[in-house]
Structure formats: C-alpha cells, structure tokens
Design a protein around this nucleic acid. Structure first.
Lengths: 184, 184
DNA sequence: GTCTATATTCCGATAGAC
DNA sequence: GTCTATCGGAATATAGAC
C-alpha cells in the first residue's frame, strides 16, 4: 500500500530513466494510473516539482541502501552497489545521475543543487568504502580512493547507457573489469 | 564557408548535447541563424531526420580523427582521444553517445542502428589501439583489450556528464586515472 | 483528493507564393 | 531555398464543481 503521491514518483522516475525528462508527459503518468491529469498536478503542481521529488526519492533510497549494508565488509558493499546497477540494466533503464546530467541545462537551480548533493554523497560513500577495504586488505587501490571512486562510478553508470546501444554483454564486461581492478 | 544545411547540423548537435533532444525545437535553430522555421524543415523535414544527420556528422568526424592520428604511436592516439573529450567538457557539452543513450527509447530504429554502428566503431578503434600499444610496450593491459576499451570509453564519456553535476575537477581526475591505469 | 473543462502556449509540420 | 501563413495536436497548467 503506497499513496498516490508515492506511486506518481515511482512511475515518473521510471519514465524519466527510460524515455528522458522531456519525453514524458503528465498523461504518461495519469493514464496508466487510471487517474486524470489534474490529479497529478494536485500532488506536483509543476513538472520541476516532479523532477525534484525524483531526486529526493533516489537520495532517500541511497541513504537506506548505505544503512542496510553498513555492517558488511567493504568489498561486499561494493558488490552490492554494482549489483544494484545490474538490476537497473536488466530493466532497460539508466542510472539517474546520467539521466539528469543529459538534461542538466533544462533543470532549474534547486534541482541541480539537490542532484549535486546526492551525487557528492554517492562519491563520498564509495571513497570511504574503498578506503575501508584498502585498510582491511580486501580491496586494492592503485590511485587515490576518490579517483578510483570516480572511475568506478562513471564506469558503472555509463555502462547502463552504453549497453542500451551495444548490448548487455558490454555491461557485464565493464562490471567484471571493475571487480578485477580492485581485487588484483 | 559552410552551407545552411551544415550550419543547421552543427547547431542542432550543440543543442542536443547541451539541453537534450526533446528540449530543443526548430525555432531554437532557426532564430539564432536568422532564418525561419520552414527553412529548417526544408533541409530536414522531420526531427528524426535531424537526429540521424547528427549521428552521421559524428561518425564522419570520428573517421577523420582516426585517419588523422593513424600514423601516431598508440599511447599518443589514446591521449588525442582523451584530449578531444577535454574540449567537450570545456564547452559544457556531453559526449554524443551519452546524449543518445539517455533518449534511446524516444529514437526510431534507423537512428538506433546508426548510433550502434558508430559506437561499435569507436570501441573497435580503442580496442585495436590498446592492442597496438600493448604489443609495442607503451600501454599496459591488465584485462582484455576490449574490456579495457569499454572501461576507458565509459569513464571518459560519463566524465563529461558527471562534471556537469560535481565540477570539472572530477573530469580531470578521471582522465588522469585512465592514463595512470594504462601506463603502470 | 479527484473530477470536468478549459486556457494558453508551443511544437512539429505543411501549403503555396516568391 | 527561403518566405508567410497556418493547421493539428499535444503539453503544461489552472478554475471550479464534487
């Protein structure tokens, strides 16, 4: 049981990450939900309001993710992170970071700031986790932890994009390459 | 001196890679060029025609690039390739691969096939070049050449996206990380 | 909180003159 | 090859009843 408002966010997020922000409309949300355009506008008066809600949705989801894996070993945390992207790829979507980056100049400042804060959070978590694993010996770093974090993040989120164009085999190869790199 | 048609393609490409395909309109092209909507439609009857022209434009540009560097040493080729992305980043745009990937499900089959062929070409060139450098000893590979090619490509094209959100320092770090990886 | 109805604007696209 | 003029449609958004 989730509220109409929550259902709208989930659906809008799916649309955003499959067709792009400017390719979906309020009726793409209202029709499959069996409600009217005006009902969506009641919950989210403007489309930027909807975009902002999508950012917050991902920000909250990521916070829950980090809490869920907090007690696990570092390399295991990274694997859970990468497996999350596998589920994105399997459903034909792309990572929210790339989706917003592409439409960046069509977004207002409030949305941009929320996305920046969220993305910085992801990078910080990756950096900290890589350092953890490096200290305990399960992860091997050949550059600074932050540089490796940026490398891994761009690898995996771009892999969801690239595999749309060239096929899912490339996603698997990129994911494996990351694991090979940090464990050798 | 370039034709109106060529100027339209260049401008449409800039718009596509700064605002996204569905965020720019025919008047975004005609107004700055000082012509009318109908003139753009004369050269490109439909918007998908314009998108297809953008793909061909990049495909031709890439072919000219590979010819230009053909006689250079492998590591030097890779550096030219990465420097090309630096110029993309400096102008605030993103790589065309990511731009089309995000709007993938809003594109017709003809465009998708052209983009797939172009992207495969880029991957093949990277793979061949990495093998070249590995044989001559200037490039170090710790995985298959194709996996490393995919890793480098996703790193650098996603870096143009990520740096929009978190700043240009991250682009520099990712680029440096690639070079460190293949030379150590 | 959802509805009907509608306002407004913009977009992609076309016809026909020059 | 570019223009004026315009069409049809879709999109965001709002007013007011229920």
């Amino acid at each position: 049981m989730s509220s109409t408002k929550d259902q709208i966010i989930v659906l809008a997020d799916e649309l955003m990450r499959s067709k792009g922000y400017n390719a979906f409309s309020y009726s793409d949300i209202s029709k499959p939900m069996g409600i009217k355009n005006a009902a969506v506008h009641y919950h989210f008066p403007t489309k930027p309001d909807l975009a902002l809600a999508i950012v917050k949705y991902h920000s909250d989801s990521f916070d829950r993710f980090t809490e869920r894996v907090a007690e696990k070993e570092a390399l295991s945390k990274i694997k859970f992170f990468l497996n999350f992207y596998t589920s994105i790829q399997l459903t034909g979507r792309i990572c929210v970071i790339g989706a917003f980056a592409t439409d960046w100049n069509a977004m207002n400042e409030e949305i941009q700031e929320a996305m920046s804060a969220f993305t910085d959070n992801v990078i910080k978590w990756l950096t900290t986790t890589l350092n953890e694993g490096n200290s305990s010996g399960t992860i091997h770093l050949s550059d600074s932890a932050e540089s490796e974090a940026l490398s891994i993040l761009t690898n995996i989120f771009a892999a969801t994009q690239l595999s749309r164009i060239t096929g899912s085999d490339h996603f698997a190869a990129i994911k494996q390459n990351i694991l090979t790199r940090i464990t050798h």
